[in-house]
Write a protein that binds this DNA or RNA. Sequence first.
DNA 1: TAGATTGTTAATCGATTAACAATC
DNA 2: TAGATTGTTAATCGATTAACAATC
Lengths: 205, 205
Amino acid sequence: MNAERIPDIIIGRLPVYLRALQRMAEKGVQTTSSQELGERVGISAAQIRKDISQFGEFGKQGTGYHIPFLLDKLRAILKVDRIWDVALVGAGDMGHALARYQGFSNRGFQIVMVFDNDPSKVGQMAGNFKVENTDVMVERIRAAGVKVAMLTVPAAAAQEAADLLAKAGVKAILNYAPISLNVPPDVRVQHIDPATHLQRMTYYL
Amino acid sequence: MNAERIPDIIIGRLPVYLRALQRMAEKGVQTTSSQELGERVGISAAQIRKDISQFGEFGKQGTGYHIPFLLDKLRAILKVDRIWDVALVGAGDMGHALARYQGFSNRGFQIVMVFDNDPSKVGQMAGNFKVENTDVMVERIRAAGVKVAMLTVPAAAAQEAADLLAKAGVKAILNYAPISLNVPPDVRVQHIDPATHLQRMTYYL
DNA sequence: TAGATTGTTAATCGATTAACAATC
DNA sequence: TAGATTGTTAATCGATTAACAATC
């Protein structure tokens, strides 16, 4: 065990372990080893043991890790042993796809509101949600205590929307706009930009 | 200049610089400094200078970097000074959103074919593309010499689809399925999984 | 017990930062 | 020239790996 600050890079790998373990559990596998898990996710066994051991002694010598137990621990560490309400901002194609995506609920998230500033979209449906006007966003998010948002507006509108989200008390933004957001230090941002991801690979072609 | 192997972590930052510079260029800005660029993307000035200097001396003491020049260099390094044809596999909501996405062409990519194995989707339109049957995928990709693919099929179908893509000669896969893919060593994979990205932030909430 | 695999230490490896001479 | 900023070196910091005693 270790009470010191855990490096960000380790936190970043835990969701990958969690995802792989969840898949194994679905297949009914009860036990795994750092070796086996490492092969699945492409990370060395030593690193997996070291990462996990930052948080406790969750394995057993000779037998490895009991998957349901390790799942519980990882979910608790990552705070996805609960369901986070998520606000979706931007009801374009990507927003609609996310609103209809079935994969969030068993990973700790559920969309609860959808916003757009285009009057022709407000009032329309996105998945099961009625699109609301961005005018009421800060108020709605604050009242609901939502801390997590996904941003799928055009690049030109993204910074302004991020400012509103920060103002509304959102602390985690998943940004689909192809632009680096400027946010207060207590707000975390993750980027999803397909072009950027593709460009990380073309260098090697 | 430096002919040695460039670390992956540096290559991974170049698309971020490229994106920020492209945005500055659109606004008509001609020149920037490592300091200014660093503030925009949240990376130290020293690191930006070091990263860029791996590939040549692209700046000028006293004045910084000429943006159009640096853009050209970065595009050439990342091999996005051309347009890569991309195959899209999976014509669900996410596939449709990507097929209609306008942001690829000025970043070095264009979708040229869309596949799905669901007979009810084959023949339908996704963006401007007629969805083709996965049966003909290997042959079509091979014949067209496509090297880049985006994978938006359900998790259960992703590994099989990845195997076909590898067989077809694809060397870069952008994987939207929430599963770690197993591919030959000469194939690169990047993951886009919104739940994983969100889980990297909930730890800090 | 014998075999397997953890948790952890120490060694290695790699990345980041600070500082500054060079120079535009 | 004076001011600004690069490219690069050396120092620091942090992450990964290898190895193995502990133990299930």
